[in-house]
Structure formats: C-alpha cells, structure tokens
Design a protein around this nucleic acid. Structure first.
Lengths: 212, 212
DNA sequence: CAGGTTTCAGAATGTGTATTCTGTAACCCG
DNA sequence: CGGGTTACAGAATACACATTCTGAAACCTG
C-alpha cells in the first residue's frame, strides 16, 4: 500500500488515523497499521516506542487541528474580549461536537487519553487554558473585565463550561437547547468577570464552608 | 435470614442495598437478594416488576438521603442567600464525594442510572434544581441577587458546577485543590448573579455564535 | 547502520460451550 | 386470594482453550 520511499512518522500517523477511524481504538492493532502501510508491524516500532505512544501522537495531531481553529478567534483582536469569549466557547462546543459526531472512533481514542490522564490530554487542556487566558487578559487590559489573575479566571471559566467540552459528557451535546444553555452560562460568567467587586461590606465571602 | 412476618418493599430494598454494596451492581443478582432474605427470587418479583426497577428504587432511597441533608441548608433562612448558595454547593460536593468514596458500589449503580437517563436520576436532578431555585428566589426577593427566572438561573448554576457533582467526573473529586476551585467558581457565579445589568450599551450580548 | 525483516514469549483477546440469571407461569397454603 | 413456592425458556454470563497481538531480539541489506 505504501507508494514509495522510506517510512516516516507522518506517514505512519496518517495510516494509523485511518486504521483507527476504520476499526476504532478497541480493535485497531499495530499489525493493521503495518498492513495498511504494506510493512511488517515491527517496522512501526522503529518509529514509535509503543502502541500507546502511537495513539497519543495521532490524538495530539487531531486535537491540534481544533486548537488552531480556535486560535483564530483568540487572535481576532478586532472584536471586544467579552464577545470573543462568547465566540470562543461557542466554537469550542461546535468543534468538539463535530468531532464527536463525524469521527466517533477517534473521539473514543481521545476519551481514552482523558480517562488515562495522558500527557496529550493534559497538554491539550493547557493549550485551551492558554487561549482563554489570552482573551481574558485582553479584556482586563482594556477594562472590559475587572483585573484578576487571567490564568485562574481561565481555569474557572473552563471548569464552569465543563459540560460543553468534556468528552465524557459528549452524550449531552445533541441536546436541542444546548446552545442557549451555553449562552445563559456565558452571560452569567461575563457578568461575573465584569462586575466591580461589590461593596466590601460583609456580603459573605471567605473560606468558610460546611453546614453551620 | 428473614426474622419474621411477611415481606414488604422496605425490607427488600434494604436487603438489596446490602447485596449491592457487597457484590456491586455488575454481579449482584436477584437470586442473591432472595438468598439474603431467605426467600426464593420469585418472591422478590411479587413486589418489584424487574431487576431494573429494584435497582432504581434502591438508588432513589439512597439519593434522597443526600437531598434531605441539603434541604436543611436550603431551609436555614437565617443566613443570607449568597452564603447559603456557597454552603449548599460545598455540601453537595462533600456528600457526593463521601458517597463515591464510602459506597463505591452503590455509587456505581447510581452512575448506571445516570448514563441510562433513568427517571430516578432525572428526578434527583429536578430535586436539586428545586432546592437551588429556592435559594436563588430568596436572594432575588431580598435584593442579594438581581431578578431573573430562578429556575433558569438554578439550571445555569447547576450546569456551571457540573464538575463538582456529575458522577461521571467523580475521579476528579480527590483532587487536592478542589474545594478552592469550587470557591473560585462560586465567587464568579455569585458576582454574576449579583451584578446589576451593565450599562445597556453594546457590550456584546445577543445570540450570535460562530467564528466571524 | 538506518531501516527494514522474521521469529518468539507472554499478555490480551476471541470463541464456543456450560452454567447461571431473569422473568413468567402454573401451582400451593393459611 | 395475597404471598409464597417450584419449574422452565431464553438471555446473559462465566470459563477454558485457541488465536492474535504486543514488544523485544536477533538478523538481513542497500
């Protein structure tokens, strides 16, 4: 099946992506990948140390396509930060949902990474948090948002929108009202980010939890 | 094993709960429940139409214990709504985490209900949303929160805190910083709920999603 | 000697059959 | 006749055994 030349990592990754798409992460084997390349499975192991590493590399590439799409929104400093945040979160949902729907097998592979807490998944989250933080920092700089640690705020926003991007909750993305649901939460979060700290009287802030 | 008298639903539920705890939802059988009661498995079917119904009933009871504990916080109108909201969410995390940790098998049974979208799970969520809405309504009445539809706001707050109560994400509850993480999000949400609608100029509200 | 091959051990997975479980029915009994 | 029993069919599960897969090694070759 291989047309010419020596095997390189990119070629293997593409073949693996195809195999994964065809058979799914549960049934895809390294032998299949070799077969797709017209090569023995051991040849694949010359380029990747393990099946796991191979799967990770494929997912990484696949996830980076999302990331790069979202980066365009982050970089579009023409529109104000609050709107950009909204767009970014909506686009995150859209692209995740598209992946889950159009590429269920690769999505399943990604889910495995997340449950195994692999570095690929962690890095992806870190990338997204970085993008969020960039938007928030812009907004804080121009006064749209009140000043705070952009990284901490980014994590809060990301966590508060878990239901719209966590792969384990993908089942709920086909819900009809989901876009509006995200909209409501965006509004709530934007109000929270924008709010001036309330009159510093005792309005119940502070570390005390627990039932009194 | 049954000490006396005729079998009633409550007795069966308790026995089932024990069996579930011992064997887990995957291995527990109706025959086991019968054995625990000193009765044939068919006797159980005189009181419950199916194994699924039995599992649901057990989970319902188990979940209602959570709900009743949280209701105490809702009813404690002595403390201001914002603080009550904080306490309620913290207590929700605490009790869910306790259940996941102390009763892993029953928790697994509950997880099954959620993934199957059973009525027991839906009802439980509805109960919690009701409690949240009550707190929010109180806060709106006394001016702590700006006026809005309490039910819609409740859903937003509930969704925004998904990571702290959704059983599918229980793995993250042992995270050391989780209490603080919840705290940060509480603060953000409370600010959002409290915020006066910002100057009605064009600060980017409205239904437009998608990458521009 | 980079980049491929065949071969192999032990782990993982599949397969096909025996057993167990669910849910129903027909049957007792106090 | 409510509340229990045993008996049973078909679905689900467990188990033992055969196959396949992973990853490593030793071995070719331009």
């Amino acid at each position: 099946m291989r047309t010419s030349g020596p095997l390189d990592a990119e070629t293997i990754l593409s073949a693996t992506e195809d195999v994964l798409r065809r058979h799914g992460p549960a049934k895809a084997t390294v032998v299949d990948v070799g077969k797709a390349l017209g090569v023995s499975h051991a040849a694949v192991y010359k380029h990747f140390p393990s099946k796991t590493a191979l799967r990770e590399a494929v997912s990484r590439r696949w996830l980076n396509r999302d990331r790069d799409g979202l980066a365009a929104i982050v970089g579009d400093t023409g529109i104000p930060a609050p709107q950009r945040l909204r767009s970014w979160l909506a686009a995150l949902l859209t692209s995740k949902r598209a992946k889950a729907h159009d590429d269920p097998e690769l999505f399943a592979a990604y889910k495995i990474l997340v449950t195994e807490d692999s570095s690929a998944a962690r890095d992806h989250v870190a990338d997204l948090l970085g993008q969020l933080a960039a938007i928030l920092a812009d907004g804080m700089a121009d006064g749209s948002f009140r000043s705070a640690d952009p990284a901490e705020s980014a994590r809060a926003v990301f966590t508060a929108t878990t239901r719209f991007h966590h792969p384990g909750l993908a089942g709920g993305w086909k819900d009809p009202g989901i876009e509006q649901e995200l909209d409501v939460i965006c509004t709530l979060l934007l109000d929270g980010l924008r709010a001036a700290p309330p009159r510093p009287a005792s309005t119940g802030r502070g570390g005390s939890h627990g039932h009194p």
